[in-house]
Amino acid sequence: MSRTPPNTGIVRLHTPSDIAPAAPIGLFRRLLRSRLSVISLLVFALIVLLAAFGPVVYTQSATRPDYAAINAIPSAEHILGTDNLGRDTLARLLSGLRVSLIVALYVETLNILLGATLGLLAGYYGGILDVLVTRVADILFAFPGLLLAILVTAIFGSSVTEQFGGIGRLMLVAGSLSLVSWPLMARLVRSQVLVLREQEFVTAARSLGATHQRMILRHIIPNVGGIIIVASTLDVASVVVNEAVLSLLGLGIQPPDPSIGKMITDAIPYLETNAWQVFFPSAALMLIVLTVSFLGDGLREASDPQAR
């Protein structure tokens, strides 16, 4: 049964006429024409810089408690205040952001290496490979939402932490989250390649005797590159939220190391005395979600030939 997925506004699925032979440089230049995209890009870049260099510049410890300042409101000493154990909120926020963004980077790398590649090969070669990839994706789709990621991190979490420490846990979280997103990417790329395969220029290239390698590298990849970039950018928003969910369920980054999701839920009981502790991490998280979605939308418009 074939059916067209609905146009959801945020992740729009491309119809054949949307396919953009967009070179990355041109894509980027066109992106900068939209003011919202430029602002989002700047804010997101700022968040990345804060996460990367913030802990170097701001040297307060993220885990050491300051018993003289428990649940403190923002002050000169603790710029964003402290949590219920007297730990500095800004320091925790900065390293929490770092965790969120590293997980997002890992997941999108896996998404492209695994999801996009498998989708491309399945769509291009068809046959048994196609059946296999589609079937595996279908099985993974049967698990609603984060269920599979929750199962995998719940079962392997503690032993991975014991053996490989915090970094291992981070990789496990990223790996299990990519179980949720790579099938989507594979399906998207596959359907795009199936459409491309029927286009005249592909037939022309084939009749000129192009090898499979040349076909994929010169004709297919340049034409699906745009949607892969758009889809992985948009996916960052859900990965950041999903990582927070895993952490607040106790499955992600382990305390005392900070994670945005855990910071928010840990601060909820103290809402009445110090709402700042909920506000700052929530605002940071929403800022990431919004800027990334605006960026993704901007990229999609920039790669859409009809909008040029």
Binding site: V241, V245, L248, G261, I264, I268, L271, V278, M286, L290
Partner: peptide
């Protein structure tokens, strides 16, 4: 719609409780 998209449940809960 945009606000609902950007506010995950675990952020909406403290907002409602506040």
């Amino acid at each position: 719609i945009l606000a609902l998209y950007a506010i995950p449940s675990f952020v909406l809960i403290p907002i409602l409780q506040w």
